[in-house]
């Protein structure tokens, strides 16, 4: 049963990863990435890392990818090709495969360096409570306290930076209202509210009709 699940999830993960880079439509590309991440979460579950699996789905599939889908759905055109291919960036076409090749060689060295002992071995034994939130929390606050705090500081800096950049580019409040004032087009008097229609008040910023109120 677990072997079947493993192969289903593994094939799903690989298909999703290939789909991300080969699909032409950015929206499908993002959806393939979502599928890939969910399959990864299934693999984590098979390794009894329940908390990591849930965090994977909550953070990546449930929050990060939601933003991706949001942005792509808003500005991504239907049949538009994704970024680099459309611009025909020549240098990237050369450098990209080179980096991929370097990574593949590195992975091969790492895997073959272990003499593939993992295939015939049984793997590490399961310890009760492994992968539970309790154990992960204990490790975070004892053994890995420093990296944990550094990572949280990094995230805080990133969040503050994002707010700062958003403020500098557009501003959060002021300019919008100014723009609204600027684009308010002049309209004829007595075409606004009920009070104006009854002639008892004049619209703000309205032009005076040709003959004045009593012309007709």
């Amino acid at each position: 049963m677990s072997a079947v699940l493993f192969f289903v999830a593994a094939i799903g993960a690989i298909t999703g990863a290939i789909g991300v880079v080969t699909l032409r439509n950015p929206f499908y590309s993002v959806l393939a990435l979502v599928g890939h991440l969910i399959c990864l979460a299934a693999l984590f579950l098979l390794l009894r890392a329940e908390f990591v699996a849930a965090a994977q789905v909550v953070v990546y599939a449930g929050a990060v990818m939601v933003l991706y889908v949001f942005v792509v759905a808003y500005i991504g055109g239907g049949e538009e090709t994704t970024g680099f291919a459309a611009r025909g960036a020549g240098a990237l076409r050369v450098v990209g495969p080179l980096f991929a090749l370097a990574l593949a060689v590195e992975l091969c060295i790492a895997m073959l360096g272990s003499a593939l002992k993992g295939i015939s071995g049984k793997g590490a034994p399961y310890v009760a409570g492994f992968g539970s939130p309790r154990q992960i929390g204990q490790l975070f606050l004892t053994k890995y306290l420093f990296p944990f705090e550094v990572a949280s500081l990094l995230l805080l800096v990133a969040a503050v930076g994002a707010v700062l950049l958003a403020r500098r580019q557009r501003g959060l409040e002021g300019p919008d209202q100014q723009l609204e004032v600027m684009i308010r087009a002049p309209r004829p008097a007595y075409t606004g509210t009920m009070a104006e229609a009854a002639g008892s008040a004049r619209a703000a910023g309205a032009t005076e009709p040709v003959g004045g109120p009593g012309a007709t």
Binding site: L31, I38, A41, F51, A54, V57, V58, G62, V69, P133
Partner: peptide, 25 residues
Amino acid sequence: DVSIGPLYVFAFAGISFYGVMLGGW
């Protein structure tokens, strides 16, 4: 009765967003 408790619900709530999003899109 999972060891991660409510996180399980949030995981599926996160995926359920795609039901809304894909349906609309």
